[in-house]
């Protein structure tokens, strides 16, 4: 199985074409197996513990604007993945315009989020510190607003999304848009590297998106997903999963 695909440039010299899409299947199958294994493992070993009630007093977890950001981002990422993968798996749809428009949407909401997170949100709440790394190994440690896994997922997604955005913009500059015509490609090798990085980031994004969705729908985590829709979790859910000394909701 090849990892990188090569092609010949205009003068017959071998250059990188991009990542091998065989890896898409590897990623998909690997993610599926790992998540299935996790599900079985959790089902088998999970202690029978009563789920905290979602009734009772509600605690605000996400502002409406952040929820909107999340779902717009989710929508654009899923659209990007779907439209990017469609031609690879042989689906015949007119994908490119949807793809770059979704990419632009993602870029704008990510910029919005970065600015908002830095100036209007509790940026520190998402920072990963050394103490966070003890959390998975010590059941007595409860996180603040975001768990270690959530922070890890956030930052992983941050890196990957920024990666696809950065490489996507480079590729976007090489197609016709309403604002510019595509330029000559002076360095086909460099173009191949952009595709390689975009493809690699995409593969990772596919994997992490799968993981994210998996955890989002897991029974013990689904209240977080609910909170991303409704904005709140119950006080019981908060106390069960969070250290209220570290997270003092409004």
């Amino acid at each position: 199985m090849e990892i990188i695909r090569y092609r010949y440039d205009v003068w017959g010299e071998e250059v990188i074409l991009g990542v091998s899409w065989d890896l898409l299947w590897v990623v998909a199958v690997t993610a599926l197996i790992l998540l299935a294994a996790h599900a079985i493992f959790m089902a088998a070993l999970a202690k029978k513990k009563a789920k905290p009630s979602s009734e009772g007093k509600r605690v605000k977890r996400h502002d409406a604007i952040d929820r909107a950001f999340h779902w717009i981002m989710a929508g654009s990422v899923l659209t990007l993945i779907a439209t990017g993968i469609a031609p690879i798996v042989g689906l015949r749809i007119s994908w490119l315009n949807i793809h770059w428009i979704a990419g632009l949407v993602l870029t704008f909401v990510v910029i919005f989020h970065i600015i908002r997170a830095m100036f209007w949100q509790d940026f520190k709440a998402m920072l990963l510190g050394p103490a966070d790394f003890k959390e998975p190994f010590d059941e007595t440690i409860k996180p603040g607003k975001y768990s270690f896994e959530q922070k890890g997922m956030h930052w992983a997604m941050t890196v990957l999304v920024l990666g696809v955005i950065a490489t996507g913009i480079l590729l976007f500059l090489n197609i016709n848009t309403p604002w510019w015509d595509r330029p000559s490609v002076a360095d086909e090798g460099a173009l191949g590297i952009y595709f390689l990085l975009h493809g690699t980031a995409t593969l990772a994004l596919v994997a992490f998106t799968a993981i994210h969705i998996y955890f989002a729908v897991r029974p013990e985590k689904i209240f977080y997903t609910r909170s991303m829709v409704t904005g709140w979790i119950s006080e019981a859910e908060m106390k069960e999963n969070h250290d209220t000394n570290k997270w003092k909701p409004e």
Partner: peptide, 24 residues
Amino acid sequence: GGNLCYADTPEGMNREHALFNASR
């Protein structure tokens, strides 16, 4: 199966090429 078009460039020789609905 590549990742660029040689005809649709600022100096491409594209006299016989498309007026409509070109996508790459």
